[in-house]
């Protein structure tokens, strides 16, 4: 039981990271019908920006600002940086291809993904960058926390999971309660109709990229607070986020959240009860099972062919 709680906690932590990444995929897929392969790399850049800001503020062991402010600043910087990056990517790599054949932006996205990961490697090398979060206020974020059935739940985990959920709530609010959010939903439902109703599609798309990429930036920081980051991390994490989005039903916001958590837990349990080596296999099997039995995902709707 203790072991199970431990694994669940782990699954929830990594799952909330996946969920944030999956949300970006889902949002962008919703409005552009584009699988943004570069999204995982935006996430990776976010973790690097976080690292840079962390170092600039004195590092984890000796920060010049209080710890809570440090975490907020690091996360905010990553979110803003990624939002800018996302907008630039959209503006230069996808917008010129708005009316191109379906496959063109996909290939452009592959190019962007490749360009970003190798640029980071060129700039900073292929080595790992460790936030050394156990040094934050002398390890207090790990000692503190509470015990659940003799399992210690560190404060940092609670902060991570809590802020991931807070971000999702904010996103839900933005999408469901603001004008732009409503325009976004209209656009993802039917782009042409939305355009005819006077919705500025370009604005909606930029807004979507800002939201999605900012979430990826936050996810990057949360990820790197747990394990070190490196230039090639975007590919695998992106893939997982992607899979989470598909399992949840691509285009669906609650779907992305549930899919992310599900994937994180599946990975964690596999690693705990079986072996880390084959966790990919388990996730792939889940993906295939969904493809066969529920291709529209948990919360997706079935597309009707239009003739």
């Amino acid at each position: 039981m203790q072991f199970f709680i431990q694994l669940s906690l782990d699954g929830l932590t990594i799952g909330s990271v996946y969920a944030l990444v999956a949300l970006g995929y889902t949002l962008i897929y919703g409005v552009l019908k584009l699988l943004n392969f570069a999204h995982g790399d935006v996430f990776m850049v976010g973790s690097f920006i976080g690292y840079g800001v962390l170092q600039a503020l004195g590092g984890a062991s000796d920060p010049v600002v209080p710890v809570w402010l440090l975490l907020v600043l690091v996360t905010l910087a990553a979110m803003v940086g990624c939002a800018v990056l996302g907008v630039v990517i959209e503006r230069f790599a996808y917008r010129p291809l708005r009316n191109a054949p379906r496959i063109a932006p996909l290939i452009s996205a592959l190019g962007v993904s490749f360009f970003l990961s190798n640029s980071m490697q060129l700039e900073f090398g292929a080595q790992q960058f460790n936030y050394a979060s156990y040094n934050l206020s002398g390890g207090a974020l790990y000692f503190h926390g509470f015990d659940l059935d003799h399992v210690h739940i560190p404060l940092l985990r609670i902060i991570t999971i809590g802020s991931a959920f807070a971000l999702m709530v904010v996103l839900w609010f933005l999408v469901n309660r603001t004008r732009t959010g409503k325009a976004m939903r209209a656009t993802s439902f039917d782009r042409e109709a939305a355009a005819m109703l006077g919705i500025d599609i370009d604005r909606v798309i930029v807004f979507t990229f800002i939201l999605g990429s900012a979430l990826a930036g936050a996810a990057g920081v949360m990820f790197a607070l747990r394990v070190p980051t490196f230039a090639a991390v975007g590919f695998t994490t992106g893939l997982k986020g992607f899979t989470a989005a598909v399992i949840g039903g691509i285009g669906s916001i609650p779907g992305a959240m549930v899919g992310g958590i599900l994937l994180g837990c599946a990975e964690s349990y596999t690693a705990g009860y079986w072996t880390t080596a084959w966790s990919d296999l388990v996730v792939f099997s889940i993906l295939i099972a969904f493809m066969i039995f529920r291709p529209q995902g948990l919360f997706g709707r079935v597309d009707i062919r239009k003739v």
Binding site: P96, L110, S113, L116, N118, S119, Q121
Partner: peptide
């Protein structure tokens, strides 16, 4: 000095530019 990543940066750029200029 870093032909490893440099080569692939060029390839990535090539893909993006090609898709836009001459798909």
């Amino acid at each position: 000095p870093n032909p490893g990543p440099a080569r692939y940066i060029v390839l990535g750029l090539l893909l993006i530019v090609l898709m836009i200029v001459r798909p």
